[in-house]
Amino acid sequence: MVPEDAQIIKGRSLWQDARRRLFHNKAAVVSMILLGTIVILAIFAPYLSPWAYDDPDWGYDFPGPPNFELHHWFGTDGNGRDLFVRTLFGARVSLLVGILATFVSLLIGVTYGATAGYLGGRTDNIMMRIVDVLYSLPFMFFVILLMVFFGRNIFLIFIALGAVQWLTMARIVRGQTISIKKKEFIEAAHAVGVSNWKIIFRHIIPNVLGPVIVYMTLTIPQVILTESFLSFLGLGIQEPLTSWGVLISEGAKQMESSPWLLIFPAVFLAITLFCFNFIGDGLRDALDPKDR
């Protein structure tokens, strides 16, 4: 096996390699462009339409179908508010919730899982028992009570969702770590006296990144969907702010009578989820060090 220094050099070129391969993946590139567009739209939402996100248009129908003369490109919602602007404001909230919560779960989950899996034995046992205990605590109950107890707070949603999602992440990483740690190069690193932490961060984590990224691309949409589930239960974000979840759960009730209420936010949501998916796939394929 190569000495430690050589491994680092090789690691660098791996990432460059990965970037090159990622940009060769058409689906991933298209997804990145689409997702970027949605993000830009969301940021500049207020400047794109003459309508505000919280003001009813008393002169138009409640809800009204798309009308280009009035610049209601997506129509209006049940309160006569412009759906285009609201969909983009919803994008801000949904994306923020999805990404931040996933980031929280990633940070905790990967460190925790890799540590447990690598150290093994008693430590692993205790650490995973803690995860089991937390796992057995029904998460919806946890979130609902948190929402009730602290009132509606968007940051609370991040924390609550992130704090729950890391459990699965930790288990997956642990499982992978256990498989990996018995491989020769880890044993070799161990033999030459590299410290445990160094091995975890330099060798284990990069090598479990494939499944972690796959899981991450599942987590972002999952968090966005969980937020929408909370909205369905009426525990979502406070008016007049909105999220895709709120818009879709409202629209779903009127899918037949006022389809635009559902279609526009749902299309945005679906595109976003698809994009995360393809980007995740692209990253996975690009990062896989064995696939050459």
């Binding site: 949409p221 969907l225 929408s228 589930f229 759960s249 629209g251 899918m255 679906a270 698809f274 998916n277």
Partner: peptide, 13 residues
């Protein structure tokens, strides 16, 4: 992916 992309409270109705 459409299974994930469409929330169940849309799919069910």
């Amino acid at each position: 992916m459409t299974g994930i992309a469409i929330p169940n409270f849309v799919m069910a109705p």
